[in-house]
Structure formats: C-alpha cells, structure tokens
C-alpha cells in the first residue's frame, strides 16, 4: 500500500510537470508562431519610413511604434522613480532600522507587494482627479501619473531585493571594514553595496519586467488606444500591454489582429528574457557565496 502511494507520487509529479509545461509551450508557441507570422517592419512603422519615425519627423498612425515608445518611456520613468527610493528603503531596513521597525515596515511593504495593481491604479486615478480640481485643464490622466503609480507598484521588488542582498552578506565581510575604521556609511557604500550589486540588479530587472507588463494600473491612469507619440510627460500615451488588451476585444480587421499578435510577441520576448536574466543573476549570486 505504501509502495503504491510512493509510486503514485512519482507518477503524479511528473504528470503535473508535463501538463504545466505543455500549457506554457502552447502559449509560447502560439504567440511566437502567430506573432512572427504577422511581424514586419511596416507593422511597426505603418508605412512611414523607420528613420523618419525614429527621429520624430513624421507621426506613425497605424503602427506599433507609438505603443513601443510609450512602454519604453513608461518603464524608464517608473524605474527612475522606484530604483533610488527602493534601494534607499532597502538599505534603511537592512542596516539602520531597529528590529521592531524592520518587522513593521517589512509587513507594510509585503502588503504593498500583494496589493492588486488595479487598487494602485485606482489610487492614482483618484489623485489625478484631485490634481485636476486643483489645476483645472492642466493635469489629467497622463504618462507622469502612470509612471508614478507604476513606480509605486514595483517599489517592493526593489526594496526586498536590496534588503535581502544586504542581509545575506556573510558576517565576516560585514565586519571587515568597521574593524579597519570605516564609519557605518563608509562600510555600506564601499563594501556592502558593491557586494550586493547583482542581487539589487536582479530586483530592478524584475521591476522592469513587471512595469512593462502591467495593464491594470495604466488602464486607469492615462493610457489610450490612439495618441501617437507623447510630446511631454503630461500627455496621454499608448502602451503595448494595453494595445494587446484593446485589440483582443475591439479588433475589426485582420490587420489589427495581426498587430495584436505582433505586440504580444514583442512583449512576451521582452518580459520572458528579463525574468530569465534576473534568474541567471540570482544563480550567479548563490554560487558566489557557496563556493568561496
């Protein structure tokens, strides 16, 4: 009887793994196949000369170009907000906070990490309404609000990876510089932070991936189906994930559907490789501490 149960576990585990990876294979192959099939330069630039489009000389109306640029701008500005704040908070939690504060604040950031992104979008939207009342006609849903909300959404990734990287440094390394007369901050800045670079970088890469794929936050804070290139941070914009969502429900022509697949393909390749990269960094980090 026990033998049977043990054998069943083996069979069950392998079957589950096979099933899960089959599903992933279906998703990946389907998107790659349809996406590559549809993919072409004109799909991105919509008939406009790529050079003209890149230099902003001529607007692209029916191509993916504005959505790609929108997503890039969004991700860059979200990370510019989240990385310094997140790293600073991570350092504070790992190296300055008293144990009680550390527990309280970590719990708070766990809540933030678990909050549905739509809730953060809702908060961003509400703040936009307040701002709109304060400065009528000037501030509405826009790239800036989306970037700030997204930065807030990915903040816990940066905080946690920084904190974890610092806390998992070996005690001998931690004591080396103080024994040589380093002040607290000198130790952090010259020894501990450089030793945690790959861990922190891993967290930032995850944050980039998360910011690039999130749809719910931008849905409420300023993304639209057609806006062209944003001329400033205070304008509405297009983005890849929203474009994919929009096409899935609103497409009218096969060309639009093809663009949807091409966009899904781009986003999948971007996010998939970012997460694998972060994983590689994590492995590198683990190996460095095991074999030294």
């Amino acid at each position: 009887m026990i033998r049977f149960a043990e054998r069943f576990v083996v069979f069950f585990s392998l079957a589950c793994t096979a099933l899960l990876f089959f599903c992933i294979a279906v998703v990946t192959v389907y998107v790659l196949w349809r996406g590559l099939d549809a993919f072409s330069i004109s799909l991105i630039f919509g008939g406009v000369d790529p050079l003209d489009a890149l230099l902003g000389r001529r607007p692209v109306f029916d191509g993916l170009f504005p959505a790609i640029v929108g997503t890039l701008l969004l991700v860059v500005s979200a990370i510019v907000v989240a990385a310094p704040v997140g790293i600073a908070t991570g350092i504070y939690l790992a190296d300055y906070a008293s144990p009680r504060w550390r527990v309280t604040l970590s719990a708070l950031f766990d809540v933030l990490a678990g909050l549905p992104s739509i809730v953060i979008g809702l908060a961003g939207f509400t703040i936009t309404i307040y701002l709109h009342r304060l400065f009528p006609g000037r501030i509405g849903p826009c790239l800036l609000i989306s970037a700030l909300s997204l930065g807030f959404l990915v903040l816990p990734y940066v905080i946690r990876s920084t904190q974890l990287a610092l806390e998992s440094l070996p005690a001998t390394l931690r004591l080396t510089a103080p024994a040589l007369g380093a002040r607290h901050w000198q130790n952090i800045y010259r020894v501990l932070l450089p030793a945690s670079t790959s861990g922190i970088l891993g967290g930032i890469i995850l944050a980039i991936g998360r910011a690039a794929e999130d749809t719910a936050v931008i849905l409420l804070t300023g993304v639209v189906a057609s806006a062209g290139l944003p001329r400033s941070l205070l304008e509405q914009y297009e983005a890849l994930p929203f474009f994919i969502y929009y096409i899935s429900s609103q497409y009218t022509t096969t060309q639009e559907l093809e663009m949807g697949f091409a966009a899904a393909f781009l986003l999948l390749v971007l996010c998939g490789s970012l997460f694998l990269l972060a994983y590689g960094l994590e492995r590198l980090l683990a190996r460095r501490f095991v074999f030294r």
Partner: peptide, 20 residues
C-alpha cells in the same frame, strides 16, 4: 531546466495569457 522554465513562466505578461 524546470527551474529556469518556471522563472520564464513567471515572466509571461498577464495580458499575453489573456490574449491567447
């Protein structure tokens, strides 16, 4: 291999799952 695949899986955008 399976660990790496799982990480890749975690990176697949939600909207792509929805689209498929």
């Amino acid at each position: 291999a399976s660990l790496a695949l799982i990480r890749y899986m975690a990176g697949i955008p939600t909207v792509v799952y929805g689209f498929v």
